[in-house]
Amino acid sequence: MSEQERRPETDGRDFADAMWSVPSYLLAGMAVYGGIGWLLDRWLDMSAFFPIGIVLGLVLAGYAVYRRHGR
């Protein structure tokens, strides 16, 4: 934590905010990059980009939520 003094009334809010937004971030990451991968698969007639997109989306979404809430 950056500030020395903890303020319990905002700490609880930030913490709950972070935890409740994790599932929607991960779903959004999977939807965006998995969707791009799925479209690439359909276009190129392959089946590799969809799983890659899913994992990439999960990693990026985890990074996004970590940067936003985890400091």
Partner: peptide, 18 residues
Amino acid sequence: LLLAPIEFLSNMIIAPFT
């Protein structure tokens, strides 16, 4: 560039849905 679509989709569409 990589994170903005995730943020938008997560806050605008998936959050009220969940």
